[in-house]
Design a protein around this nucleic acid. Structure first.
Length: 529
RNA sequence: GUGCUCGUAGUUUAAUGGACAAAACACUGGCCUCCGGAGCCAGGAAGUGCUGGUUCGACUCCAGCCGAGCACACCA
């Protein structure tokens, strides 16, 4: 990664300066290497002088000037930079073009493995997402976690983790009984909607529990799975809660917690002392009617994840309505000996607006917009891009009436168009020799594209580190934009054979990165549109 | 009432405490005898809910207030 090379250079130069007695000891981990917003500020810049000035009470601007001299001196040996200068206390670096030319060859050589890293150290990580209750079709709100979890798992895999995708099916407990009653349409019926009508017609069971279980199975197969299939999400495993009850795992977890002394009996219920692990109140494991709670099953489920299946890390992507459960489950996971290995990402709710009114989503009242309806309206790629490009904490607004109209202008098509254009040019020219002289790429826009391509590995690692998935769609949009500008300004296939070959290799590299980024987002990369 | 999340151009969203707040859509004007016009160029448009504070520097951190969503179960 080019950014890391810059960081290493800065550290080496600093150490040299310290040896010469120019600078005092300093914590290098605080050094920030960033890409400036404007090109005039170079390829990378550092806040180093501000850090040092705060710590040692020196004027940052003067310090920056000194640092530049030290850097320039060090660079005589390394020959990495075209320009190092200080502006307003920032130190800006412009790298030699050779570095980028080498990176271009690297992309062409590594192909779709460009951006792969060992960041994850082959640790096993599980990403669990959507996991909506099997009591109805996926709503737009439920489905937000789909693209997010899918993309995050893909990026973690690319970053050297062994990642798996899982859907947890809560096919036990009260809600399944209620679903049964709803299918039977008796006086305890609650869920409403077309799918209930359909299940009601087909149902032959008399017993509400059995009817509910069967209905849940059908809802998974017929509705939920169909929707995840339409989004092309491939789960490694669908885990059924029922399994935990059947195999006695819940009893086991209660025994484990009891043996460790974290449980007690109160008001005829059996409690988990979760306050020992930072929770604000204790939680019930077994209700006074003898039935285990959802939490008991969930802790058992996580014991299975960590102990039986050996995941080093588990990332659960939940809707924000489950906020109240986070502390309880984290306490449970800590109690069974896996503290700090569970991450829970909460996705804020999607507000659906129709006819300028906010629709309250509820499967019980039957008012909701299903993900399938959204997919019918805008298609899978546009829907995925829409959700992916927003941060987890954002309260997304989704206007159904604008969806269709907006979808035609969805940036995803702009990105796919860039990909299709490249494919079209390369199809026209046939096989392109990989022997070319990158130094012929002299136009500013060519260099700009080259620099943007070289950022891809940074973006991947950044997402793997922060889970800020929206950085990837943003990056690809920028990349596509630079390509379109290049395409407008420069002829790819021209008189000059050498230049043509260099340019074709440049767009070949662009195609590699675009394709990989689209793959990670699970968005299609059409050769023709 | 308490806790969590959020409040940024007309709209939908970006912005590890860093440079003049960035894009897309919409709007206005322009660009193909030439590799795909689903494209390109130019322009107007917010100073980040409000009031203070911390800092060399705040959309970002802190306090208070206003507004929105969610949660505060022996439901899942």
């Amino acid at each position: 990664m080019i950014k890391e090379k810059v960081r290493q250079f800065v550290i080496v130069a600093l150490q040299k300066g310290q040896k010469d007695g120019i600078f005092p000891e300093f914590d290098y981990s605080k050094i920030l290497i960033t890409r400036p917003e404007t090109k005039e500020h170079g390829d990378f810049s550092t806040n180093l002088s501000f850090l040092l000035s705060a710590q040692f009470k020196i004027n940052p601007v003067a310090l920056a000037n000194n640092l530049v001299e030290v850097f320039l001196e060090t660079d005589k040996e390394y020959q990495m930079f075209e320009k190092i200068e200080s502006i307003n206390g920032f130190i800006n670096f412009r790298l030699c073009k050779d570095i980028y030319f080498k990176e271009l060859k690297e992309i062409l050589r590594k192909k779709n493995r460009y951006g792969d890293s060992l960041f994850g150290k082959r640790k096993k990580v599980q990403v669990e997402f959507i996991s909506a209750n099997p009591t109805g079709p996926l709503t737009v709100g439920n489905a937000r976690g789909g693209p997010f979890g899918d993309c995050l798992a893909n990026i973690l895999q690319k970053s050297g983790f062994i990642s798996q995708k899982e859907y947890y099916v809560n096919n036990s407990g009260n809600q399944i009984a209620i679903l049964g009653h709803s299918v039977l349409k008796d006086e305890l019926s609650e869920y409403k909607g077309e799918y209930i009508e359909e299940l009601h017609k087909e149902n032959e069971e008399k017993d509400p529990d059995k009817a509910g279980k069967l209905a849940a199975k059908m809802i998974i197969d017929r509705y939920i799975r169909k929707t995840t299939d339409r989004m092309n999400i491939k789960y490694d495993k669908w885990f059924f809660e029922e399994e935990l009850h059947r195999s006695g795992k819940i009893k086991q977890i209660i025994n484990i917690l009891t043996d460790k002394g974290y449980t007690y009996l109160k008001d005829k219920a059996f409690w988990f002392r979760s306050t020992d692990f930072g929770d604000e109140r204790d939680r019930v494991l077994i209700k006074k009617d003898g039935q285990p709670t959802y939490l008991a099953a969930d802790i058992a489920y996580h014991l299975n994840k960590f102990q039986e299946r050996g995941f080093d890390k588990v990332i659960n992507i939940w809707g924000a309505d489950h906020y109240g459960d986070v502390a309880g489950l984290k306490a449970g996971v800590s109690a069974i000996g896996f503290p700090d290995q569970l991450e829970i990402i909460l996705l804020q709710f999607v507000t659906v607006i129709k006819d300028k009114e906010v629709i309250k989503m509820s499967k019980r009242t039957g008012t909701y917009i299903t993900m399938d309806e959204l997919l019918d309206m805008v298609g899978s790629d546009a829907a995925k891009y829409f959700f992916l490009s927003r941060g987890a904490d954002t309260h997304v607004n989704f206007d159904v009436d604008l969806a269709k109209q907006r979808s035609e202008a969805n940036p995803v098509f702009y990105i796919q168009y860039a990909y299709a254009r490249i494919c079209s040019v390369l199809k026209k020219t046939g096989i392109v020799s990989s022997r070319f002289n990158p130094a012929l790429l002299k136009e500013n826009i060519e260099l700009e594209l080259l620099k943007e391509l070289a950022v891809f590995p940074d973006i991947i690692e950044d997402v793997a580190r922060t889970y800020q998935v929206q950085k990837l769609p943003q990056y690809v949009l920028e990349l596509a934009s630079i390509f379109h500008r290049l395409y407008q300004d420069c002829r790819m296939i021209g008189e000059d054979k050498q230049l043509t070959r260099a340019r074709l290799n440049l767009i070949k590299a662009t195609r590699i990165v675009l394709k990989e980024a689209l793959y990670l987002m699970n968005i299609s990369a059409p050769k023709k549109m």
